[in-house]
């Protein structure tokens, strides 16, 4: 089967094919889900190498659970987000002793004329501000506003109520805004805010 023939196959159907020994399904799932898993882990951990380890571990857990996966019961992405959230929480607890000052500051002396530069600096500032949030707030804000998950999905991922998700994202955004307040003018926020 050509690789792109699997583009329209849903994740859970691919997982069933994978469990039945289909090599193309393994490749399609790897290509489709690894970037998503890695992106989420990187935002939670703020550490590229650790994020890669978590992504590999989360995908390994998916491969192991594949034979027991019940199609149509849960979304594969929801399950993966939950696994990554838990793996990152474990790692962050172990690293809690590390001071927040260890988070690298974005370089202030870069020229900010170019739009690309501004966006890169904003992304870096966001990442730095996210790192200051409590874990659950960070997870909720990233899932809602970066990963694009709905509140009911986030409730499933974090295993909390929808009301608790709304509360977490609201508090998280308020804290982010406070953390970013001093950098807005510097990062050209007024141009397109």
């Amino acid at each position: 089967m050509p690789f792109d023939a699997m583009n329209d196959v849903p994740d859970d159907a691919l997982l069933v094919l994978y469990a039945n020994g289909d090599a193309d399904a393994a490749r399609a799932l790897t290509m489709r889900l690894t970037p998503m898993v890695l992106g989420y882990a990187a935002r939670l951990l703020n550490d590229a190498a650790e994020a890669e380890d978590v992504a590999q571990e989360a995908m390994l857990r998916l491969w192991k659970v594949a034979p027991d996966w019940r199609q149509g019961e849960a979304k594969v992405t929801t399950w993966l987000y939950r696994v990554v959230s838990n793996l990152c929480t474990d790692r962050l607890r172990k690293k809690r002793a590390v001071a927040l000052e260890a988070v690298p500051e974005p370089e202030d002396d870069r020229p900010s004329a170019s739009e690309t530069m501004i966006k890169a600096e904003r992304a870096a500032a966001l990442q730095q501000a996210l790192a200051t949030l409590p874990e659950r707030q960070r997870q909720a804000v990233v899932l809602r506003h970066i990963e694009g998950a709905t509140n009911p999905e986030i409730a499933q991922i974090l295993e909390i109520s929808v009301e608790a998700v709304e509360s977490l994202t609201a508090r998280g955004k308020r804290a982010l805004a406070a953390a970013l307040a001093g950098r807005r003018a510097e990062l050209g926020y007024q141009n397109d805010g």
Binding site: L38, A123, K173, A177, Y189, D192
Partner: peptide, 23 residues
């Protein structure tokens, strides 16, 4: 409400790309 959309837009575009080694 909090003026964060520009940051979220920038954050989405700056996702870590998986290395060939990880894949």
């Amino acid at each position: 409400e909090f003026g964060l959309n520009a940051y979220f837009d920038a954050g989405r575009k700056a996702a870590q790309i998986p290395s060939g080694d990880l894949m």
